[in-house]
Design a protein around this nucleic acid. Structure first.
Lengths: 139, 139
DNA sequence: ATATTAAATGCAACTATGTTGCAATACTAA
DNA sequence: TTAGTATTGCAACATAGTTGCATTTAATAT
């Protein structure tokens, strides 16, 4: 059975860096969540436990991103949304963004295509597809 | 020969809304520019003439966007970038974003594909492709 | 041309997301 | 257990963008 807390701790321990309760809790929250969530949403989910400082949360998220446990997307609300990485989400990002509620959903099974060549000298490292529209609840 | 100022005025006049020097100047700047530029960059280009107020510039840009003279994209720097629309850019956006200098370039001739279906009940209104990497100068 | 009126502008103050420097604390290894 | 370094918390800051309201200006009617 699925225990995000334990899994998070295991993942962080295995990478050889410092294991802190903050990192575990935040990663656990993101593992349990099936979508990209904002700093603010994570803060709310941390509210019962001894709350992590706002700044620390930002730094933890940045760290998780650097270590590739997580990736981040910015939506039309100009706010970072974080989501736990799974093998499929790693280098191909497709996200759906609701134009009404600004909810961000990850579309893992996409196949982003880009036919035309880039301008001369340009190098592509990552491709991100953003589909905007209305989610089921707002449609 | 290409006169952005005149063309901008003509476009705004034809849409039947108020023609103001602010709107003309900003649209002219965006027409002359071949890429997506930030509020800040536009402000610099306005510096010789009697400068538009910061807030007004935001409102002019918002207005130009609503009237579809312009579209906006947010980059990884979480800043809005604006670009004049041409028929091709209208409903298909593809942008290249340099990971080093954060320059945003529009790739007009893309053909974004999205194979998988959206989750049930979701509606797509717009598709945006973001290719991240290094531009010619930073590569 | 002048007056009228609604829309656009300028100003000041504000909001929100995210950052930085530094002192205090906690994790790891010896 | 102790030492040393990485992480955390706090306060102050930076920046992009917004809001309310008084003033000005573009379009319209006289």
């Amino acid at each position: 059975m699925f225990n995000p807390q334990k899994q998070a701790e295991e993942m962080i321990r295995r990478c050889g860096e410092r294991v802190t309760t903050g990192r575990i809790q935040v990663l656990a929250i993101l593992l349990a969540e099936q979508r990209a969530v904002t700093h603010h949403e994570i803060e709310k989910r941390l509210s019962d436990k001894p709350r992590l400082n706002r700044v620390t949360l930002y730094r933890v998220l940045e760290w998780l991103n650097e270590k590739c446990f997580v990736h981040k997307v910015v939506g039309d609300d100009r706010i970072w949304h974080f989501r736990a990485n799974s093998p499929t989400t790693y280098h191909q990002h497709a996200h759906f963004e609701c134009m009404r509620c600004t909810r961000v959903v990850c579309l893992d099974d996409m196949k982003a295509e880009y036919d035309s060549p880039l301008p001369a000298g340009y190098q592509s490292r990552e491709i991100e597809l953003r589909v905007k529209g209305l989610c089921a609840e707002c449609a």
